[in-house]
């Protein structure tokens, strides 16, 4: 039983086709609402957590404990005028935030969410190659940032976009090789190892893939930190040298989209690590509360990410390129060899 069939049953007094159309629409809508609420919660908790680490109080004016601060901020950003600079390239300037947001939400649409008490499986997209699709989709967001950097014709934005490209090319190859090792190991367990749902349910055999591939877990986590581009690796928008990197020329809600994209990629990265390497939704009674397990793991990883963000200094761009090609790449290849030996030799 899954969410689609439940919704179709709910709408069954209407005719068959209308019931299924409404079911598809509402399952997607519920997913989007869940993700939107999660993103608002991520931003709120980040601000509270940062305030606590810096011995401040954080937002506490709008609503009890400031929980409506994010809604007030969104209203402010929406009301502000979007200043369109004179020298912009019009189409890419306007398309860039849309591309960032689309990449983010398509990534969330591909995740397997596990099952929840009465509803059953909450996964919305059923594809046998969803891992390949996910790799393709998470490569969309950097394109939006590069478009933003180049089209706004600002020196800071351009340098930020170039640095973001250098950062992206440094971590993406190790990330792909660790995913390759994961697919290799999953091919012994399931008949469709390119499906994220199959990988997640087959990780029951090892408790979690992170236990048999600790190097892969480390490399993938570092790649996700670099992909979301926060503090140790926030080379694209190093806000003490370049003003704000690629989003320098953006104001109003267009800037807000980039801001949400940053936190959203933290959340997506945490969800990907917990799905692929930390055992996803498996656990005792996972048929009833699997979704809760996934959410708890994701939030723990989000808090670890915030701690890393708030306690690490930024590293220099050439040091990061060196780190990516000299350390992460050999580590991921060693992980690949180990995964091959484990899969073939011990037939895990």
């Amino acid at each position: 039983m899954n969410v689609l069939l439940r919704l179709a049953n709910f709408f069954s007094p209407l005719t068959h086709y209308i019931a299924y159309i409404l079911a598809y629409f509402f399952e997607t809508l519920f997913m989007l609402i869940f993700i939107t609420i999660s993103l608002v919660a991520v931003i709120y908790i980040f601000r509270k957590y940062m305030a606590r680490l810096q011995v401040r109080r954080g937002p506490n004016r709008v609503g009890k404990f400031g929980i409506f601060q994010m809604i007030a901020d969104m209203m402010k950003l929406v009301q502000k005028e979007s200043i369109l600079p004179k020298k912009r390239d019009d189409l890419p300037y306007k398309v860039a935030p849309v591309v960032v947001m689309l990449g983010l939400f398509l990534g969330f649409a591909l995740m397997p969410y596990g099952s929840f008490y009465y509803i059953g499986s909450l996964t919305v997209t059923h594809s046998s190659v969803s891992l390949v699709l996910l790799i393709a989709v998470i490569a969309i967001m950097p394109i939006g940032e590069i478009l933003a950097g180049i089209s706004s014709h600002n020196k800071y934005a351009m340098v930020g976009a170039l640095r973001a490209v250098a950062k992206d090319v440094s971590f993406e190859v190790p990330m792909m090789i660790t995913i390759l090792a994961l697919v290799m190991m999953a091919s012994g367990q399931t008949s469709s190892p390119l499906n994220i749902d199959s990988i997640a349910s087959s990780s029951r055999a090892f408790i979690a893939y992170g236990l048999v591939q600790p190097i892969g877990l480390g490399v993938f986590m570092i790649s996700m930190i670099a992909r979301a581009s926060y503090s140790p690796f926030d080379l694209g928008e190093s806000d003490s040298e370049l003003v704000s990197g690629h989003s320098t020329e953006y104001t109003g809600m267009r800037f807000g989209i980039f801001y949400v994209g940053l936190f959203g990629s933290i959340f997506l990265g945490s969800m990907m690590v917990s799905t692929l390497y930390l055992g996803a939704y498996n656990g005792p009674f996972s048929g009833d509360v699997g979704f809760i397990y996934l959410v708890i793991k994701t939030w723990i990883l989000v808090l670890i990410s915030f701690t890393i963000w708030l306690s690490m200094p930024r590293i220099r761009i050439d040091k990061f390129v060196n780190f990516g090609w000299k350390y992460l790449l050999p580590a991921s290849v060693i992980n690949l060899i180990l995964a091959g030996i484990l899969t073939l030799g011990w037939s895990l």
Partner: peptide, 26 residues
Amino acid sequence: LDGYIALLITLVLMVLSLYAIFAILP
């Protein structure tokens, strides 16, 4: 291809909501 319908709906809904954010709400 019915597994991919959710992706299509996400795409359409996102474009519509971003149009609402950028054109109607301001």
